[in-house]
Design a protein around this nucleic acid. Structure first.
Lengths: 143, 143
DNA sequence: CCTTGACGTAACCATTATTGTTACATTGAT
DNA sequence: ATCAATGTAACAATAATGGTTACGTCAAGG
């Protein structure tokens, strides 16, 4: 599976902003975050742009611009982040429609879809258990 | 996420073989399966090849060649199939190592890895709940 | 022993998602 | 008016998936 690191980067960015703000700073720039993540600032701006659309982050423009959290770290779960940035499901059905004349080809789609729904629900339940506050606590504990 | 349909196709193929065998046939050809799945026979052979490596399917060569199940449908869970064909994890950590001088950059990897382990475990638990026998029952019920 | 049907596999290509990068218009406090 | 940083377009590189063609290999049955 094309493992993607979008959730990792998004959680990293938000956690970084949260810690930075707790240390007394107003806003964090995409360049600062990109340095910690070790990537390009545009990657950060793109991700935070998606997060701002769903009300997890807020950006300021002009002089003294940068990013802030829209809510406290404790009020953001990994599920919130996941839903903001993950478009498609983990598993897909057939690319081309299976043979509808075949019993299996006809019934396999709904059967698998039901399973996939349960799997996605379990995945979401698990992601909902962890807040970014939890993540930050683990991060500081490891230091 | 690059939603992939490999699990769907694999479950479809195995279920098809299982039903075909119950109807009294010895072996199923990749061409027959491909017709039901609506794809190319090579795609089926590639997938079943991976499944045979972990002991879920068996192939015969020569004249009268084709595929058989290595175990009954009731003894194959979707987790078995998933583990045979899914190489990587659903979520990945950073592509490039984050800044180790940064508190967050240093601790975020292990923190997220722990969460991802729990998520994968939940996903596997869910897939283990369904056997191909269950899938076939749903398929026949829909007919 | 040789024909034959299907497997096993390599080699491409097309499509898509993700990530990295450059470039530039826009914003808004100072 | 300046200027730092956002918002966004555009493009390349990489990788995974899936479709296709081609061909060597195998073994049952004539």
């Amino acid at each position: 599976m094309s493992a993607n690191s979008r959730l990792t980067i998004a959680a990293h960015a938000l956690t970084w902003i949260g810690l930075y703000q707790r240390r007394g700073h107003e806003v964090a720039t995409s360049e600062q975050i990109a340095t910690s993540v070790n990537t390009n600032p545009v990657v950060i701006r793109r991700l935070l742009g998606e997060l701002s659309k769903v009300g997890l982050a807020v950006s300021r423009r002009g002089a003294g611009a940068g990013w802030m959290l829209a809510r406290d770290l404790a009020a953001i779960t990994l599920l919130d982040v996941y839903q903001a940035i993950e478009p498609g499901p983990v598993f897909a059905l057939h690319r081309a429609t299976p043979d509808p004349e075949c019993v299996v080809g006809h019934g396999i789609g709904p059967a698998m879809a039901a399973v996939y729904d349960d799997v996605e629900a379990a995945l979401r339940r698990e992601l909902a258990k962890t807040t970014l506050e939890d993540v930050l606590r683990d991060v500081l504990k490891a230091a």
